[in-house]
Structure formats: structure tokens, C-alpha cells
Design a protein around this nucleic acid. Structure first.
Lengths: 254, 254
DNA sequence: ATCTATTTGTACGTATGTATT
DNA sequence: AAATACATACGTACAAATAGA
């Protein structure tokens, strides 16, 4: 784990559990412990830090809440260094944006900038299994939705297409951000304006984009993939704008 | 605060403190509490959840570690809903990437996609104070660095330029991501290859880019700002590539 | 399958620290 | 300055879970 960066401002005062948590973090880094490695048990930590049991436990909870450790009971149990999961990271970051009232436009501005880049970088780099997975996914919305609920399901499914791509990203940060945004959009409740029927033409365009995109990815045509994805994002954005979509922020828990 | 999303997989079992933390989170959302609002004191929580003091305290630590509450002692003290700070969010997200070995290339791929977008969106939207701040910042590296240490300082200062822009973003997510990346780069230790002298030409280009960028922003010329920033990012990337830069991941604490 | 040892998890009572009035 | 209200910290006792004999 990483050590604390230079503490710039003279912070007021850190509570003991936080101090202990930081100390354990630093110790883990110093020892070069890797994910899966066991850290000292409660008893030893109590002794080493000369703190009460409760204090140590609170420190462990802090590390656990940050996704850095897991704990198990029983013989051989204790705290174990844990790689922060993507799910946990998304949840923690989601808490930040909960207070920020993001708009759909904000998200699409980013998707428009990033997803074409991802598509281009994946061209020729996907296994046949993944390509097949993408095609199977598209099949879930080969026909227009009949009911409102079905439409909602299709919407989520079409977002899954992008989540699959995100997972394949060689650039961990690019993949994470796109995955995070797709999650936000999936969590949205979409209300379509009652008297505006779904735009079939745009829906069809979106589906075709995805089909052509898979072909471009298979043919290692990065430029084409990028351009299709750009069109796709613009279509999707237009579709969202036409529907009455309300951004409903909420906490994501792991 | 946001409620838990649908728990898809039957998770093994959540420890009591985690359960309590989730319950408090949900309760806060339900009550519509805002940042700054006080939540029930320890005593009341102990009563309401019928849990021991220690358990409640661990729950509070979890929420605190996630940046969702702060606690104060003394009369009128207790837990208070707190907007997750950008610093905290960056630290938590940094923990995720600590295990992911990001490369400089990964970061610049993203900066190249996002910073021009930010620049374009800021054109004509910056106050004269901010524009002056940017110009003052550029002045810190109006002359080539004489020493290695001075060069390092200039590098950090030139990154601050981008942090200032990020802070002005209307799109909270765009601003956050760029700020996060700038932080990562600032935290890097930069080792220049001993026998490769700094590339003065590129350095000069970078400085000029920033100057011209401020002008474009002042003149509300979004397209120009975007194009300058694109060039700037390409220059900066080339500069990083020429120097021997080692990505050194570490934990960021708030 | 049962017991046993180990280690975390929970509970409770008391004492201390800290800020408000 | 003193009393009050609250979190913070400590120590012990017991419960629950798990691995291994």
C-alpha cells in the first residue's frame, strides 16, 4: 500500500484510530506486503501500538471501508491485504458525485471524448470469445421493444455492451472511467415523456452502430471503430435528450 | 446520501458495523439530511440499533473513512453529514490505481482526450481573476530552469496551471478526472536521464502554448483553445517520453 | 462428525478528553 | 471557572466462526 503524501496543511488532529490506520498502511508498504498477505492479529497490534482493542478494531474498519483489507475470523484468520476492487472504487467515487449533481450532458460529454478512444485502442485486440459476447449482447435488442419495461431492459443491456468493452481496456484508467459512467447511467431511472413515442429511427441507428463496431474491431480497423463509436455516442446522446431523463444520484454500496 | 443499490449477489455476510453503517446511510437519505446536518448521538444510535457502543463507533468510522461524515466532540457534538471532499475522493480512487500499475502513456492518452475538451468549454467562461492567476502561474517558469531541482519545481508549477483549469470546469466529472491525473503526475518523482539534456525547444513550446491558451480563453475562442491544448498535450507527452520517468504509485492520504 | 484451539466479533462498564455554555 | 454534554479510549468478559485433529 502507498505511504502518506506530504501533509501540506497542519491538520487539526487525527483521531487515534486514523493514526493507527495510517501507521498500518505505511507499515504494509514498508514491508512490501502484497494482496493476500496477512497482517498481524489484533492481539499483536494491541501490543505493538499499545492501544486498546476497540481502537485497533476501529482502525481496521477504516482500512476495510477503503477496500484495502478484508478480515476473517477463526484460526489463521485476521486482516489480509486486499486489492481495492473495481466495484468498491466505483462505490466510493460515486459517493463523491452524489453531492455534485451531474447532468446527463456531463456524462455524455465525457463518453463522447473517451469511448471512441477506447474503441480505437481495442481494434484487433479482442479475443473471438469477447467478440462473440458482444454479438450475443446485441442480439438481446435485435427487435424494438414492445413494452416500456422491455425498453428499459434493452437500454440496460445496450449499456452492458460498453461495460464489456471497458473491461477489455488496456488502459486501466480509461476502462475504469467508462465503466463508472456506464454504471451511473444504468442506475438511472429513465422516464420517457408520455406523448413522445420512442424514436425508432435513432434506436435502429444505435443498434446498427454496435453491429458495425464489432466488425471494425474484428477487422482491426481502429480508425473506423473510432468513427463509428463517435457517431454512436452522438446518437445515444440525442436519444437521451429526446427522452425525459432525470438524473437520480444515489449511493452505491458494494 | 444514496441508498444501497440492488444487492445482486447473495453476499456472504456483512459484519454488524457495516450493516449499521449502511442503515445509517439509508436513514440519512430517507430523512433527506444535507451536508452539515447532525445525526443522532452515540447514545441514541446505541438505543435505536440496540447495539453496543463499540459497534456503533466502528460504523461511524466506516462512514468517516468514506468521507461521508465528520465527528466532533463536546456539547452539540456528534456525527455530521459531510460532502465528500475532492481530496478525499482522489485519495480513495488513488488506492484503487495503486494496484493497477498505470503508465505515463495511460495518463497522457486520457489527458489528450480530455484536456482539449475542457479548454474549449472554458473559453469565455473564466473571470479575469482566474485568467490573471493563470498568467501569474506561467510567470513562474518564464525562464528555463538552471538546476535539476528548479526544473522539478517548474514541472509541478506547470501542472498547477492545469489544476486551476480543472477547478473551473462546469462539468464536475471532467474537472475531477483531470485534477486527479494532475495530482498523480505531481506526485511522480521525475528522474531525467543523466546524459540527455533537457529539451529546451520542447520546453519553450510548452510555455508558449500556455500563454497562447490563456489568450484564446480570454477571447472566447473555444476552437483555438482546444487546438492549442491538443498541441500542448502532445508536446508534454513527448517531453515525458524523452525524460526517464518512472511511475511510482503510492497511497495518498487526505 | 465432534471436539478443540485460535482468532475475530460483540457487549458493557468505567474513565478520560474536549468543547460549549 | 465550573458544570455539562458529548465523543474518545480502555479493559475485560463472552459469543461466534473457522481450521485442524
Amino acid at each position: 500500500m502507498p505511504p502518506a503524501t506530504t501533509r501540506s496543511k497542519a491538520e487539526p488532529k487525527l483521531s487515534r484510530p486514523v493514526q493507527v490506520a495510517e501507521a498500518i498502511k505505511d507499515w504494509v508498504v514498508e514491508q512490501g506486503l502484497q494482496a493476500g498477505d496477512r497482517l498481524p492479529g489484533e492481539a499483536e497490534l494491541i501490543e505493538r501500538f499499545a492501544m486498546a482493542k476497540g481502537t485497533i478494531r476501529e482502525a481496521m474498519r477504516i482500512l476495510e471501508a477503503q477496500g484495502l483489507i478484508k478480515t476473517r475470523t477463526g484460526p489463521g484468520g485476521g486482516g489480509f491485504v486486499h486489492e481495492v476492487s473495481r466495484q468498491r472504487a466505483k462505490a466510493l467515487l460515486g459517493n463523491y458525485f452524489y453531492f455534485k449533481d451531474l447532468t446527463i450532458g456531463d456524462i455524455y460529454q465525457l463518453r463522447l471524448a473517451l469511448e471512441p478512444e477506447l474503441a480505437a485502442s481495442l481494434a484487433g485486440n479482442l479475443s473471438e470469445e469477447v467478440l462473440a459476447l458482444l454479438e450475443d449482447n446485441i442480439a438481446e435488442y435485435s427487435e424494438p421493444a414492445a413494452t416500456l419495461d422491455e425498453e428499459r431492459q434493452q437500454h440496460v443491456a445496450s449499456l452492458r455492451f460498453h461495460a464489456v468493452l471497458a473491461e477489455q481496456a488496456k488502459n486501466p484508467m480509461l476502462g475504469f472511467i467508462i465503466d463508472f459512467m456506464v454504471n451511473l447511467l444504468s442506475d438511472l431511472t429513465v422516464y420517457r415523456r408520455l406523448y413522445s413515442p420512442p424514436n425508432l429511427e435513432l434506436w435502429k441507428q444505435g443498434r446498427d452502430h454496435q453491429q458495425r463496431l464489432v466488425q471494425a474491431l474484428r477487422n482491426s480497423d481502429g480508425d473506423l471503430a473510432r468513427s463509428i463509436m463517435t457517431d454512436h455516442m452522438e446518437t445515444a446522446w440525442t436519444l437521451m435528450r429526446q427522452q425525459e431523463v432525470e438524473m437520480q444520484s444515489r449511493f452505491i454500496s458494494e
